[in-house]
Design a protein around this nucleic acid. Sequence first.
RNA 1: GCCGAAGUGGUGAAACUGGCAGACGCGCUGGACUCAAAAUCCAGUGGACUAAUCCUCCGUGCGGGUUCAAGUCCCGCCUUCGGCACCA
Length: 809
Amino acid sequence: MDFKEIEKKWQKNWEKDKIASFNPKNMDKKYYCLEMFSYPSAAKLHLGHWYNYGPTDSFARYKKMKGYEVFQPMGFDAFGLPAENYAIKTGVHPKDSTEKNIANMEQTLKEMGAMFDWDAEIKTCEEDYYKWTQWVFLQLYKKGLAYRKEAPVNWCPSCKTVLANEQVVNGACERCGSTVVKKDLTQWFFKITDYAEELLQGLSTLDWPEKTKLMQKNWIGKSTGGEIEFTAESGDKFKVFTTRADTLFGVSYVVLAPEHPLVKKLTSDKQRKAVEDYIFETSKTNEIDRLSSTREKTGVYIGHNAINPINGKSVPIYAADYVLYSYGTGAVMGVPSHDERDYAFALKHDIPITRVIKGVNCNDDLPFCDDGIVINSPGFDGLTSEEARKAIINELVKKGKGEHKTNYRLRDWLVSRQRYWGAPIPVVYCDKCGIVPVPEEDLPVKLPYDVEFKPDGESPLAKHKGFMETTCPICGGPAHRDPDTLDTFVCSSWYYLRYPDSKNAKQPFDPEIINSILPVDKYVGGPEHACMHLLYARFITKALRDMGYLNFDEPFKSLVHQGIILGPDGNRMSKSKGNIISPDPYVEKYGSDVLRLYLMFGFSYTEGGPWSDDGIKAIIKFLDRIERLSQKVVETTQMDNDNINKDEKDLLYATNYAIKNVDRDMDNFSFNTAIARLMELINALYKYDGLDIPKNNKLFRECFAKFIQLLAPCAPHFSEEIWEQLGNKQSIFKSEYPICDENALVLDEIEVAVQINSKMRSKIFIPSDANEETIKELLKKDEKISQEISGKEIKKLIIVPKRLVNIII
RNA sequence: GCCGAAGUGGUGAAACUGGCAGACGCGCUGGACUCAAAAUCCAGUGGACUAAUCCUCCGUGCGGGUUCAAGUCCCGCCUUCGGCACCA
């Protein structure tokens, strides 16, 4: 078969037939199947894209044949850093390079033969999309969910530019090698923390991998405890958050994050130099290093003390970088006796250690971090840790020095990016009116084309007068725009809402359409998005719901992560390892169906694994076998024999067994076993064909046709061609998926295993409807079994229907 | 360091709620066809013992346990991959 020709032929026919288009009138049977859209990189589709899109398209086609009205769109997450870096390096404008890359990828995606509804295509960098990204921003702003505050960025003092985390290598700028420092900028945030509890609770309603749900749960990081107010000798008050209020009497110091404003205020003259040096050193460390547990616990006494509200004891205040200003209150109480980190810190800084918890029936050497019985805590001694946590906070509540509090690790989402290639932030700054949102009718705030990319301390938009200078929508006076653009995660946090109504020029989407086609029924993409993208999308959905635009709570009902295809050497593919496998030569040589089938058969979909050329060979052989048999089927015309004897029954069994299992496996993304079942069926068809008896050719032909239908989602071009050769005039994807005839699966006799004292001893055939008595009779008839059990008492007979019999003697 | 996942033949991998471990492939071995090779077809293929494809025993990272029965459940280790949070 000339696969190149048939691929072209069927891709054209599908386009003509509108196989991929969605009929909104058929919403009752809608199925929204979504693959994560891709970033348009200069390279063509890589194997990762193929592995994501190929098998998932087969899933979508399977759903279509099952009678669903499938909506499967595709688009591009087109804003982003790489295009801008490329522009700095080569001078090619991000818009030009991105458009070129998109055109390239569109073509390869089409060659793959996936059933994408191209009419619904989205490119996030186009005005008619980012206009609505800006709209989303304005809605959040109106609802008080977008706000500005100071936050640090990575700053290269030599390039005078803001760096992304990935551009910082070992604390140095990737371009010039200078040490990167933190610099505070006023930036926009989305208040995702308002939804922390709902984002956590909602997880239980989702059909997602447990692992992913757990990761989100840990990311949200709920912990319950209390906030306790300490008073510095100066009279200044600050709060610490703790989950271990039961250890409050054991506090022997407190720590403020170096960035905490009180550090500068309270530091004594004697300690000033040491503290300032320490703050400067901290500004050079990135958060991951700072949080590394292997790192030495550094910190410095600020020369000032604070009063423990429970016992009036004065304890020293330290500044230490293991406390983060962004989490909790940015201040921590130090209890060396019952916290490992505090213990290490206390030993190093010669701080006293007081035990306040006694272990019960266990080794309670210090630091003892488990719960126990409270001691050395006047008024609370003898309570369990759990009781004491409540009692001590209650006592503080009475004194007005504390409260019960739930804390979340989740932080608000910083959406400002000091870059050009992104959606402009739709806000102007007026000297008179302050922060003024751009009126919706003035959207989009267009991203200008003519900008200078060379990094020189100012971002490209900041330098562009025509963009920056504007007038205030309220007073009409002079105003300026925000030079920053939105994080690309903002663009991808709502794209699934745009697809079904992608041409709408009046609204981001028509709520009526969206509410009937959403939520997404199956979302497929890489596990690396478990925390960021998937959480942001859930947040935006909930926020838009609360504004009345949506009537559902969760965007993605069911989620699947594909695994990772490794290089043939078992390592992750990378340029430096030289183990990159490109899909192109395989498509060129064997066709896209072969590549897709190999990806489906050779791996467990969610696991992935190393690439192997041998697997490709297996698929070629499989398709050859099908094609040879199809020739025979097509050429056979004699149809007068309609006997159903043993061999025909076997063939019917094999066919229906395959239907049942392929159907189930496709639905579960268990593609490798689905194809294994198809291989079994083709073997059974060959076996029947090879029999030296008068054949029931009509039946044979029907079974073969069903086989092709089962195969069709996985090898779409190939199957269409054979389907046509079998005399069908309509696309196989408009045919009805085969239905399993359960009657054909009922066998007269079933082979069951026989165990004696749980050891495998024999196998016997029993009638499928046999009761215990019949089975006993049959066991006696079996020579081997009767020998072994003769003269011995049968203590117990365990019968597992249709599987095995275990005789205990 | 913490969290998560996974360890099954020479190899990619199967095994539904505990019920015949290794489905389906690749590779290998032998045979048929061929002058020969490729392709194709047929048979075999976890290990040990063996003349044997009869028996028997051993086998799902390691050590225990529960059970009539454990790859699957429980406890304790080892290793390898992912993720990352000193989260107070």
